[in-house]
Write a protein that binds this DNA or RNA. Structure first.
Length: 660
RNA sequence: GCGCCCGUAGCUCAGCUGGAUAGAGCGACUGACUACGAAUCAGUAGGUCGGGAGUUCGAAUCUCUCCGGGCGCACCA
């Protein structure tokens, strides 16, 4: 509703500016006045025009207000302060629009987007840092879909990298297991219902330590073993590669299960092994050479390599660019960034090659596919997107910038412009939390605000452990309150609240803020949390239950009310109008979230709406209201707040429980 | 050395493309359950927006500089 009104006012203002001054500003600044008494929308446009028109802002504002006349949906326009133009909505019209939900229909943009998130190395359990990635990515997918985009969700799997090689070394050489032993162990863990990714978590840390814990000659041999193992895995077609395949696949399956607990699903899992074996790089190499993005270096420290100029680097003819990024090493092998360029050409449908596809994981609604050398027919098609979003932490902004630079250099400027590195800061542990978990913390770390999580050191909080802990805590609360409900129902509610708490916790911070993780904050269910919002939903549902009516019935009745003005004016009703206004902002917030790639705005919106509802709830007793028309109005207010809260929560991937 | 991010209330964070009197949550202190469930609400205290300079009618927001913290800058993935 607010978005609709804002657009209406903008268009009207443009008409006035054109007719009166023959000015067509690029954008019209529109904001919310600091106080509702000043109106609902405001623009400081007169300040900007003051210089151009050589007139006082206040004078300009007065002229514009006089020319604005009347506009449907608006009650009045006025000049305020030194030259603000404040607009008051026709409150009754605004309320009717918000109640009808008409403005919720978002015009489908038709854009085909690809969001890649999660991308955990399949060699250990997921930890809280991975949770932030997956929750951010999944939420953004929901937002894009809400805005009418067609979105493919990908989870890139580096199944041939050094991290997988490390656990393979761990199994074969630290634990001295044979290939058969490894298979037997996997079977055994599976039959006991134990988590293989947890086992690997410890083994990975142990192996990382093993590389440096021997004598110098031993360590030297271990390093060699590490790289020999990596190369065997990359090459494929040998027993080491087979073990890597088996382990990475079971760990990947575990990651999908963990993420499914949070309602996170994927469409396609492209793997590094297929990128290698289907020769994506070779196809990209030809294009890169042809376009001149890559050049062969004959001088300097990068002599014998194929390199590319870094973004923003200044180069001069005849001067060797020592800072250039190496893409092909002097021994002929390709670097990570090179493979990533090839992969991203595929994402945009520019590579001229495709993966094979096999079904891998079944969700209630759909299947998740995985890449394969020889796929199955028929299969859905992935890649060839118009816009892509890579949810990758901020530390990888340099390599991401390199890939974008390469695309741009190859002439794919439109694609480069629609390539978003959806970056976010890491989740670290507070020193207190690290101590609580029993880790040894150095005195200097103890004085830091936070300590970085490290899979290599086995230092961190595992995702499943945190989820288990959250569910146990919410279950205790539910058990204390919902004594009349059976076991299964209480468990279901506890899970909904726990996931709500976790997802909200990861979404309330803006992306570039480091989250210093602490159990006290993460396990909190009061104040600015997911459960606070869910609680508002439950309260509203209880009102309808006790009132023996439904939101639909109430809204139908509400549509028949002839006069709304008396309920929306006067100091005692100001907060009710504020609640309607907030409820009517959802699509505007959605637009803002997508424009800034920032889901936190929606999290904040949902909280504020819940807060305003709770405020309203305490001030106006609905079911005992004696005036039937006013009661209908109050019930309609609750119905719209409910609809908006449930929908906003759904976009955040948070369920709305019936009771809690 | 170069690049990116951060510094706002005791703590954790918001602050929309520069805009009107800087906001939440937590914590502290006062109050409100015979009400539509208190996982809630009302109130009080608490801020030189890291320091300085500049641009502007107007700066927490933009520029420069300094201070403090974090993260990147491989022929590793």
């Amino acid at each position: 509703m607010v978005l609709e009104m804002k657009k209406r006012l903008e268009a009207h203002l443009r008409g006035v500016l054109q007719a009166k001054y023959e000015i067509q500003p690029e954008s019209i600044p529109m904001e919310t006045p600091p106080d509702l008494r000043m109106g609902e929308l405001a623009t400081p446009i007169a300040f900007e025009l003051a210089r151009k028109l050589r007139k006082a802002p206040k004078m300009i504002a007065q002229e514009i207000v006089a020319a604005l006349g009347s506009l449907e949906g608006f009650a009045s326009f006025e000049v305020a302060g030194a030259g603000y133009i404040n607009a008051r909505l026709d409150r009754a019209a605004g309320v009717r629009m918000a109640a009808s939900g008409e403005s919720l229909a978002v015009t489908a943009s038709g854009l085909h987007s690809l969001v890649e998130h999660t991308s955990i190395n399949p060699n250990k359990a997921a930890h809280i840092g991975h949770l932030r990635n997956a929750i951010l990515g999944d939420t953004f997918v929901r937002l894009l879909r809400a805005a009418g985009q067609k979105v493919d969700v990908q989870n890139y799997i580096d199944n041939t990298g050094v991290q997988v090689a490390d656990v393979v070394v761990g199994f074969l050489h630290v634990e001295g297991k044979s290939a058969g032993d490894v298979r037997a162990l996997l079977e055994e863990l599976k039959s006991k219902g134990e988590r293989i990714d947890f086992y690997c978590w410890d083994l990975y840390a142990k192996t990382s330590q093993w590389y440096t814990s021997g004598t110098d000659t031993e360590n030297e041999a271990r390093k060699k073993l590490r790289y020999a193992t990596l190369h065997e895995i990359e090459h494929g077609g040998n027993e080491t590669a087979e073990i890597a395949e088996v382990i990475s696949t079971v760990v990947l399956r575990r990651h999908l299960e963990t993420m499914l607990r949070l309602g996170i699903e994927y469409d396609f899992l492209p793997r590094e092994s297929e990128i290698l074996h289907l020769k994506f790089w070779e196809a990209a190499f030809e294009q890169l050479k042809k376009s001149g993005v890559l050049y062969f270096e004959n001088e300097g420290k990068n002599k014998g390599c194929w390199v590319m100029t870094r973004p923003g680097a200044e180069t001069a003819d005849g001067v060797t660019d020592e800072d250039a990024k190496v893409i092909v090493r002097s021994n002929g092998t390709v670097t990570y960034v090179g493979k990533d360029i090839a992969y991203h050409l595929w994402k945009f449908g520019l590579l001229g090659r495709d993966f094979g596809y096999k079904p891998f994981f079944k969700y209630p609604g759909h299947a998740c596919w995985i890449s394969a050398e020889k796929g199955e027919e028929p299969h859905p098609h992935f890649g060839g997107a118009q816009a892509i979003y890579n949810v990758i932490d901020a530390r990888q902004s340099d390599p991401q910038a390199n890939v974008i630079q390469a695309l741009r250099g190859m002439g794919h400027t439109e694609q480069a412009d629609r390539y978003t590195h959806f970056s976010y800061e890491m989740v670290a542990l507070t020193p207190r939390c690290a101590v609580e978990l029993g880790y040894e913390v150095s005195p200097e770390d103890l004085n830091r605000p936070y300590i970085e999580v490290s899979g290599r050191k086995g230092f961190g909080v595992k995702a499943d452990d945190l989820i288990d802990k959250l569910i146990a805590a919410t279950r205790a609360e539910v058990d204390a309150r919902q004594t009349g409900r059976d076991e299964a129902e209480r468990q279901r509610i506890a899970e909904q609240i726990a996931i709500g708490a976790l997802r909200y916790f990861m979404l309330k911070y803006t992306r570039n803020s480091v989250i210093a993780f602490d159990f006290k904050d993460a396990l909190s269910f009061e104040g600015e949390t997911g459960p606070y919002i869910q609680y508002a939903v439950v309260r509203i549902r209880n009102i309808f239950r006790k009132g023996e009516t439904s939101p639909d019935a109430v809204l139908a009745e509400f549509a028949k009310l002839a006069e709304l003005g008396t309920y929306l004016s006067g100091a005692e009703n100001e907060d009710i109008w504020a609640l309607w206004l907030r409820a009517g902002r959802r699509t505007m917030v959605l637009e803002q979230c997508i424009a800034t790639s920032e889901p936190a705005h929606l999290a904040k919106h949902a909280f504020q709406l819940a807060q305003e509802f709770n405020n309203f709830y305490h001030k106006h007793h609905i079911l005992t209201e004696e005036d039937p028309a006013r009661k209908t109005f109050l019930l309609a207010t609750a119905a719209v707040a409910l609809r908006e809260l449930v929908e906003a929560l759904a976009w955040l991937g948070i369920e709305s429980p019936e009771a809690m």
